[in-house]
Amino acid sequence: MKSTSQKSGYLRGDTVMKKASVLKKIKGGKTVKIDVEIDDGKIHDIVISGDFFVYPQEALEELENKLKGCSLNEAKSILKEYAEKITVLGFTLDDVAELLEKAFKA
């Protein structure tokens, strides 16, 4: 289970907007990647992508929207909550939490 990350930053107003792209290879062959923009310790934008499955499908976009504006800890509790109510195949929402943690620390 390797993961890689790329990061870049740019100035937005007087705070630094951090952009990170973090990827995790899941045992069994699927890949999950997050592209995230972190602004002042909060998620400004996030896209979770890969060759996995989510049921119901709309739930992933809904989750991404909920994560926007969240701190790392807030994001983690939302991911826990979603893990209870949606079916994901090929990765877990714990993987997303792990990737987010990496992105925040990057």
Partner: peptide
């Protein structure tokens, strides 16, 4: 797949050079 990013999933240059059409499915994978 529905949840993929185009740039991660396909070689856009190769597709356009060879005029291979592509689209996103409603299914994951």
């Amino acid at each position: 797949g529905y949840f993929q990013r185009v740039s991660d999933a396909v070689n856009l240059d190769f597709l356009s050079k060879n005029r291979i059409p592509f689209t996103r499915r409603i299914t994951g994978g």
